[in-house]
Amino acid sequence: MPVKPPVWASSLPAALLLMAPFDILASLAMDIYLPVVPAMPGMLGTSPAVVQLTLSLYMVVLGLGQLVFGPVSDRIGRRPVLIGGALLFAAASFALAATSTAVPFVALRFLQAVGASAALVATFATVRDVYAERPEGVTIYGLFSAMLAFVPALGPIAGAVIADVFGWRAIFATLGALAVLATLNALLRWHETRPATAAARRSALPIFRSMPFWTYSLGFSAAMGTFFVFFSTAPRVLIGRAGYSEFAFSLAFATAAVVMIATTRFAKGFVARWGIAGSLARGMLLLLAGAFLLVAGQLFGAPSFMTFILPMWVMAVGIVFAVSVTANGALQGFDDVAGSAVALYFCVQSLIVGIAGTLSVVLLGGDTAWPLAAFATIMALLVLAALAVSRRRARA
């Protein structure tokens, strides 16, 4: 039987202050430089497609890296994986601030994603180690979701301000400095939580055979992928076609995250009423509703706040309902191999989002609402179908 790890000594607020920065930084690195994305081809002497690659590559590597670091954290522990990943993230961020051409920039984004991947999987494995069987578990997932909603709200605004005052290089220098501060805090206070057994030798095959794991991982992918396609297309739609300034774009973009934050305050009650499967299903229906509004705006209106941002508000509510339950739905029963299960969960999401999300943007036109509407519709329908299959199997 697995031996439980030492009790986490920190209070819940202190634990959040310790762990949340790594989760936030991994997300912040995706969207803090969105306001300067339209200008980056000229700054790096490259094409818009290569700049889009820096967004997509980060997402894909963020997931693939976890297939390596999840099992590693099960074997050698969460703490060394976290510290090593955070230091690599910081070093790559500082190097990004010093580069001037496309090839080194893409390579350093790859390394930055590797570091973020290690830190992210170690953080969520620690959450599973410490809170899987404690009442604070539901609270900490909800709080993580709420804090992550602040990232797209504040990240682009902070990026626009930093770039305007100090230049675009300061954006990446800021990421490096924040990573250094978070790592210093972890060096002092983050103790090891991996169960002190040979649990890492347990086969991971049951994870691959679990229908609930794949259903809820697909649901997580649908929710996060919708937001990925939104922030990939929003600069080109609002700045390029609607004529927004960088700061006005950041404010409009932030409203979707504010909707997510507000929804998070009420999600716990809805989840208690609807259950895990019911909450995911309703989240997917809201994605479909938002996609319908996007299509209507694309066909009968011009790019604007009303036709692009307001439909995203509907989707944002659906995203919160989905991500509030997908981790518990996917990872139940795998606490003794939490690192591997969390790694696969995030890897599936990152691959689907990075590949399918990028294809939708490239093939359907990144300056229109079609990529967002198509991705949300297809993914939501797939998740609803998987939920139906799961229900039939449960009845059988």
Rank of each mutant, 00 (worst) to 15 (best):
P6F: 05
V7I: 14
S10D: 09
L12W: 03
L17A: 15
L17Y: 00
A29R: 05
P35K: 01
V36T: 03
A39I: 08
V50E: 08
Y58T: 08
Y58K: 05
Q66N: 01
V68I: 14
S73P: 06
D74M: 01
G84V: 03
G85Q: 04
L88N: 09
S93K: 07
V106S: 06
E136H: 02
V138C: 00
F144H: 07
A149E: 09
F166Q: 12
G167D: 05
L175D: 03
L175Q: 00
A179M: 03
L187T: 07
T193M: 02
P195K: 00
A198H: 12
A199F: 04
R202N: 04
L205F: 11
S210M: 06
F213M: 05
S245T: 12
A252F: 13
F253R: 06
T255V: 03
A256N: 15
V258E: 10
T263S: 13
K268Y: 13
R273L: 13
R273K: 15
W274E: 14
R282I: 00
G283V: 07
L288Y: 07
L288H: 11
G297F: 09
P303M: 02
S304G: 02
F305D: 06
A316Q: 08
A330H: 02
D335E: 15
D336G: 06
L344H: 07
F346E: 10
S350E: 00
S350G: 13
S350M: 10
V362W: 00
L364M: 10
G366Q: 03
A369E: 06
F375K: 03
A380C: 07
A388F: 14
A396E: 15
